[in-house]
Design a binder for these strands. Structure first.
Lengths: 167, 167
DNA sequence: GGGCATTCTTTCGTGTGCGAAATATTCGCA
DNA sequence: TGCGAATATTTCGCACACGAAAGAATGCCC
């Protein structure tokens, strides 16, 4: 194959890719920052506000299901719940069916707060998407989904542990 | 305006938005996880590897420009550099022109490591984008850019402090 | 029925990550 | 000159965040 202006094409594409990566980072970090700012108004931290909003929507949850929801390790969530319990926002309650499980439950104080805030994760990001035409949203979804599939493929995606792939 | 099946449209749209948000979170956190995993192989943490790769590409940087690059506060980067200095990966050097400035410089050990790794931030994400057709990449860029603009608009975007808006 | 793998949570050590206050240096300007 | 505002970095206190190991309870299976 003869020489082509390949590097030029690559250069342009690299700029686009850089911009996309930058944008994703921006959206993610800005959303986090805003959640935090919003939480501060109620004397909470970002993760604490998220926990309150999840418990309020889904009811009592075991510590591990909570961890799964907020995509953090159990050991991290233990700490978050410790501090929230100290503040009287949640209570730990041992499950009766399986006494290994700790159920996290909102106290009255926690529920009152929940009603005041009603926050979605990544809220500004969502709000921004509201201002975008339907067709563009669909396009965004379509391509992001392609990218995600590709990442999962590259990563191996056996859940980093679970089911060893058998085909 | 007469009644429309508005809630149905909203429901569908909400699902799409949820999926988009989920995907962005996935891409961001998975990229971070991979960087960290990769760093471990060299006895480094994620941020440390990022610092090495940036310094290696751009040469010596002041602490603040480094903070800007990795989008973290100065106080955070101070800590990262402390530990890297302890490990003999970088040196602090007071600038001669402006003695307020601390220049961060890779040691020989740091440079050797840099040559071994050569990592881009959010690397898998980038790699995944490589497998996506040009037209889709352009679409993704176009719409994400719209979203970003909308977020900036919503946030006020006076740099959270800088130039008080005067129009 | 007793032990052993499994599951759920906590503990521990270390490393970010932030914001406010302290410190050091430079710059503008009266 | 000399002093107060501005800039660059560090210190401090706190809250995540993770992984490895310990602790507690369950379930399986001989």
């Amino acid at each position: 194959m003869p020489g082509e202006p390949r590097s030029l094409l690559h250069a342009k594409r690299k700029r686009t890719v850089d911009a996309i990566v930058e944008t994703v980072i921006y959206l993610y970090t800005e959303s986090r920052r805003l959640t935090k700012e919003r939480a501060r108004a109620y004397g909470l931290t970002g993760p604490q506000l998220t926990v309150i909003s999840i418990l309020s929507q889904l009811g009592d949850l075991s510590l591990s299901s909570l961890s799964e929801r907020i995509k953090a390790q159990n050991s991290t969530v233990t700490g978050i719940i410790d501090r929230m319990e100290r503040e009287g926002l949640v209570r730990r309650e041992r499950s009766d069916e399986d006494r290994r499980i700790v159920l996290i439950r909102l106290t009255d104080k926690g529920q009152t707060l929940a009603r005041e805030v009603a926050l979605e994760p990544m809220e500004i990001f969502r709000t921004a998407l509201d201002g975008i035409p339907r067709r563009d949203i669909d396009e965004l979804f379509r391509v992001l989904d392609l990218v995600q599939a590709r990442v999962r493929e590259l990563v191996g995606e056996t859940d980093h542990e679970a089911t060893p792939k058998e085909e």
